[in-house]
Design a protein around this nucleic acid. Sequence first.
DNA 1: TTGACTTTTTCTACGGTGTAGAGTAAAAGC
DNA 2: GCTTTTACTCTACACCGTAGAAAAAGTCAA
Lengths: 209, 209
Amino acid sequence: MAGRGRLSRDCIVEAAMRLLDREGEKAFSMRKLAADLGVDPMALYHYHANRGALIKDVLQALMETYDVPAPGPDWREDLRKLCNGLRLLARRHPGAFRVYELYEDWIPAEHRVQEAFHATLQRAGFPPQKTVRAVRLLLTYTEAFAVDEITGWLEPFDPTDREAFARSLSDGDFPVMKSLIDEIGRSDTDADFDFGLDVILRGLEAEIS
Amino acid sequence: MAGRGRLSRDCIVEAAMRLLDREGEKAFSMRKLAADLGVDPMALYHYHANRGALIKDVLQALMETYDVPAPGPDWREDLRKLCNGLRLLARRHPGAFRVYELYEDWIPAEHRVQEAFHATLQRAGFPPQKTVRAVRLLLTYTEAFAVDEITGWLEPFDPTDREAFARSLSDGDFPVMKSLIDEIGRSDTDADFDFGLDVILRGLEAEIS
DNA sequence: TTGACTTTTTCTACGGTGTAGAGTAAAAGC
DNA sequence: GCTTTTACTCTACACCGTAGAAAAAGTCAA
């Protein structure tokens, strides 16, 4: 466990992903990662120039685990698979996925995902501009939904939450939400996501028919 | 400029919002805020228990500046106004809006916005569950799009970016994106947003017809 | 005016962060 | 063996949020 040669780019990246997923992005730090690896913090800097470079490698590794589904006969079904693949990724690596969403630069491996989206829409017969716009729409929705999911935003209310929410509604004048409170508190994330995706797909169909 | 009584909850919140918008969330700190106000960092803690409480007040102030548009005869038009109001908010306070998106708790003032969305859909004739789901869809899309907008993700490529992007596409095998590169680089955020919103609205119409 | 009390602001200090730069130990090359 | 390169550690710095004590400034009663 001690001495030379126990570190490597890969094992650091893997440990970082685990730490990120286990404790969340806010709790991640170079020092904790080093502690997990039983190593001095500065040892990490032999493999990555700085925290940002390490994070980038983690995100690259994350996106490489996305496996692009094979295209089928129905482009709508293809898109559903592509989108749900992203949600799956988010659930498997919630910490890393959140960081991915905050990251303000290209991750090379994400091109794979985007290529699949663009190709699917192109095959479906969308013209160039609509292809690009539809991809943006689908990715925006799917990724934002996935973040809400892993953040716990979409968890059903437990009784305590429900009461707190009801109280905060009572402070103002929100009759509609008040009447919908049970519906707002309930939540079936798969069905909720599918609702939104179906709406979008139905709307998209009209663009090429 | 010195002495007692120069601070107040409001002036701290305003200064915090300015600092956030000017320098971005990453550069925000209690110490910089105190420096802006010409005051010892700890003075701020007389008005807010901690950084989190201050941020919450900033977000509350932010959401209070959203003015709910009056409902008109067409629910689709109402929704367009509601959504574009959020984009406007984001552009006016990019720093604060980003923090709002990251914030993992209810901001009382955001109920106002959500009430308006729910009410509009209810008026349009959506049943309870579809109302709630449609609101989630619209807010998810709009807020995520707004974040992309203020983050600069949607900026058109300048020549340097374009070349870097083209090069990163060449490293892998992305024929479709390569053929769409100009379309991807171009960007008219208003039109892009409207495309997505129209798709969603068209899809939603089918839910009540 | 003085003394007591309250409110507001400051000072000092602690444990956390990322990381620069020098130092050390182990492996590799000859 | 010795030298050079590589892998890792140590120390230190500037920044962060903030606890707790001190100090200053304002208020009010006597």
